[in-house]
């Protein structure tokens, strides 16, 4: 069991307030899409969950195996150790390290070390291309391959909750589809709970169970199914320009 409950969150950078009184939740085994255009606070929210940014106020609770943890105030390493991993926006690989070294960084926490070989094997099975290229420098790979490395790197810590920030950014349409499908496949095979921030509405809805539309740091609409999101007028306004 793993779920995240965010309540009354306020966050930002110094005096620039980005997130205002935001509450949402991601239930066990769900794939929840966080929809919204640039600059509405999707990444800021993810940074708060990972402990990379300390919110001004509010709480982020992680329920895992019957235990409840308050994530606000925790260090990122502890949060990763609890079982949350993030695929950052723009992939953010370590370009001068090899593919295998990049993956090893994903298992940096001590608890993930004993299972390193097993997880590496899992990643190479999930992404056979990466096995071929394990000794290649990550910076020399194509955008699609880099996205695979970023996904695999997040899985190296055996997370229960996966945060994916804008997986479609900078990818050719074919690779966007493949990435999204891969996330779905991995989610099913590993029993992950997924929170995915995405601008590409149609792609996100392919795999999302539910979604939130975030506008200027607030939840503007909560859709309990892909169909509900599809018919929503806010979405029509923000995405289709209708």
């Amino acid at each position: 069991m793993s779920s995240i409950t965010i309540s009354h969150l306020y966050a930002g950078y110094n005096k620039v307030h980005v997130i205002q009184d935001l509450s949402m939740n991601v239930g066990d085994g769900e794939t929840v899409a966080l929809l919204g255009t640039n600059g509405n606070g999707k990444s800021t929210l993810m940074r708060c969950v990972m402990g990379l940014l300390r919110p001004y106020e509010g709480s982020i609770k992680l329920e895992i195996d019957g235990l409840s943890h308050e994530l606000v105030g925790m260090e990122t390493e502890e949060i990763v150790s609890l079982g949350i991993a993030m695929v950052p926006e723009g992939r953010r690989l370590f370009p001068r390290l090899t593919v295998e070294e990049n993956l090893t960084i994903g298992a940096f926490r001590t608890a993930a070390r004993p299972a390193l070989a097993r997880n590496l094997e899992f990643c190479f099975e999930a992404f056979p291309r990466l096995r071929e290229r394990r000794h290649q420098l990550a910076g020399s790979m194509s955008g699609g391959e880099q996205q695979m490395v970023a996904l695999a790197r997040a899985l190296m810590s055996e997370p229960r909750v996966l945060l994916v920030d804008e997986p479609s950014v900078g990818l050719a349409p074919l690779f966007v589809t493949r990435t999204i499908e891969k996330i779905k496949e991995l989610k099913e095979s590993r029993g992950l709970t997924v929170l995915m921030a995405e601008q590409n509405f149609h792609q996100a809805l392919k795999i999302a169970d539910r979604g939130y539309v975030i506008v200027e740091g607030e939840i503007a609409f909560e859709g309990n199914s892909a169909a509900e999101l599809n018919d929503n007028e806010l979405i029509q306004k923000f995405y289709m320009g209708v």
Binding site: L52, E77, S81
Partner: peptide
């Protein structure tokens, strides 16, 4: 290579 990303992956 990328300190922010290293931090996000739990590197102390």
């Amino acid at each position: 290579d990328d300190e922010g990303a290293a931090e996000a992956y739990g590197v102390p």
